[in-house]
Amino acid sequence: MKTTGKWKVSVQADRCQGHNRCYAIAPELFEVDELGNSKARGDGTVAVALEDKARLAVKNCPEHAIRLTQEP
């Protein structure tokens, strides 16, 4: 059974090198600081409509820095 709105994205700061691929794909989910490093917007909760974009962000990060986790 599909759960909705239960996914969260997060960026592992020690891995992010500022490629900004996630921000290009899903600016609704990620923001970029002055140095170009990315972090999840707000608490990282992914709206249902953005789940596909969140998955794409994960799969395009060259540094494997993005996590997509399901809330228990």
Binding site: Q17, H19, N20, K59
Partner: peptide, 20 residues
Amino acid sequence: RQENRHAAFGLGIHRCIGSN
């Protein structure tokens, strides 16, 4: 191509500063 973790701008600490 949807999934594309390419390394054109390098990987790790030397990621191309000018990539954007």
